[in-house]
Design a protein around this nucleic acid. Sequence first.
DNA 1: CATCTATCTGGACTCACTCAAGAAAACGTC
DNA 2: GACGTTTTCTTGAGTGAGTCCAGATAGATG
Lengths: 145, 145
Amino acid sequence: MPSLDHASALRHAGLRVTAPRLATLEVVSELPHADAESVAQAVRDRLGTVSRQAVYDILNALTDAEILRRVSVGGRSMRYELHRHDNHHHLVCTECGRLEDVPCTVGHAPCLTPAEDHDFEIEVAEVVFRGRCSRCRETLTATAP
Amino acid sequence: MPSLDHASALRHAGLRVTAPRLATLEVVSELPHADAESVAQAVRDRLGTVSRQAVYDILNALTDAEILRRVSVGGRSMRYELHRHDNHHHLVCTECGRLEDVPCTVGHAPCLTPAEDHDFEIEVAEVVFRGRCSRCRETLTATAP
DNA sequence: CATCTATCTGGACTCACTCAAGAAAACGTC
DNA sequence: GACGTTTTCTTGAGTGAGTCCAGATAGATG
């Protein structure tokens, strides 16, 4: 029962268990890397009316509680995924925007240390790999020689 | 004379040499990691009126020409720096947003290869290190024990 | 069940950026 | 240097993502 797990995750973080929050967690686990608007739409599909503000509040609260992880891959909108505490990275297609997870070989953050730390206390290293997915490579070689 | 270099860089890329473009290049070299609005403001300080649209067009054209590099470190706005073709990375303070360059030990892209490539043809690996800078660490330990 | 306070609603607003049409200015050619 | 072509810039409106605010609602605690 995923929603039971979700409910206990919420309670664990000291957050109230509400229908919009449970729906948000279900949506994010079914549509990983969804942006806020997609999450809002999918939540509305299950519950009827849910305000944009509620969705943003939820996404922010759950991100702060480390139940969700917010990822920025360069586009204008943030993407959300369940926080699996595995410090994995992302692979983005420069043509179509397709987004895949890449397991981190180290597993825990920070998986890399910079050559020079500028006296920062490094917490995480986020890596975004950019390239062309197989589908886009085929399309491009078919049209452009 | 930096503006001579800038002018030839523009001509090399097949772009016309205009005052707003030269000013933009000067501004970006003086204020690395500036966002579009800061660039626009600094360009206006030198030239008088320059439209927002002109600045965005310039930043896009110069980024396409690989004279500038656009970097996204998670905030809402894009940052710009001179493209040095060295594939360096960035270090961001999670408290104050301070942004530093980190040299890439490999030097050319992609400096890393993912554990699993999902049949992508990887072009670059962009790494963002997040942590606390020394200044913010001091401030935090002073107020919160 | 009552109360308290976290959460959600609705609506206005900001910010970063884009679109479109026409005016202005670079560059190549005479 | 003047001319015409084409790129670049101006003006002004528009979009998408996200935030702010005041008040209504509904989990949690006693």
